[in-house]
């Protein structure tokens, strides 16, 4: 196994999560959810560690991580931006919002700005369709947005 580059306390926490679920392979998705919560993403070393705890091949863990969109292997920005691409938001113009974010931040979907401040993603429906088009930044929901509002929103975030 490759040498671990994770911080000691993270290693310990991941091990504890696995043990909480009795190192049960069937709980892999629940374990990954909790493990991702620690640092906001699932680096390769963390996947290796989980695989060895559950006694399954790393390929299986990697297979699951890459299958589900909720799991990510790249760190998110301090302000993770998610543009809703549900149908209701789409027909009310969310594609234009996405274009504007991409243009202003100079990054594509799934990327993080070099300063680590913003990351950009799409999501499928937060269920606030009455406020369409909707963008989530961190936990905050911004509703009824127009491309012209985006500059101010980005400027306000530290």
């Amino acid at each position: 196994m490759a040498e671990l580059k994770l911080a000691c306390n993270i290693v310990k926490q991941v091990e504890e999560i696995c043990e909480k679920y009795n190192n049960d392979q069937g709980e892999l998705i629940n374990i990954l959810h909790e493990a991702q919560h620690l640092q906001g993403y699932l680096p390769e070393e963390m996947q290796r560690l989980i695989a060895s705890k559950l006694n399954i091949p790393v390929s299986k863990v990697y297979g699951v991580v890459t299958f589900y969109t909720f799991f990510t292997m790249t760190p998110k920005g301090r302000h993770p931006i998610s543009v809703c691409m549900g149908t209701a938001c789409y027909v009310r113009g969310s594609e234009k919002l996405l274009e504007e974010f991409k243009r202003r931040l100079g990054i594509d979907v799934g990327e993080t700005t070099p300063d680590g401040k913003f990351s950009l993603d799409c999501l499928r429906c937060v269920g606030a369709c009455g406020l369409a088009p909707v963008v989530m930044i961190g936990e905050k929901v911004y509703g009824r947005l127009q491309a012209a509002d985006i500059k101010n929103i980005l400027d306000e975030l530290e």
Binding site: G26, I29, N30, H33, V64, F67, Y68, T69, F70
Partner: peptide, 23 residues
């Protein structure tokens, strides 16, 4: 059991595999 963002998991056989911790 928590899903992890895969539309296909609404299909019942896929959902069952996902609950078993698989793709």
């Amino acid at each position: 059991r928590y899903g992890a963002g895969a539309f296909v998991c609404g299909e019942e056989t896929a959902l069952i595999h996902s609950m078993e911790g698989k793709r």
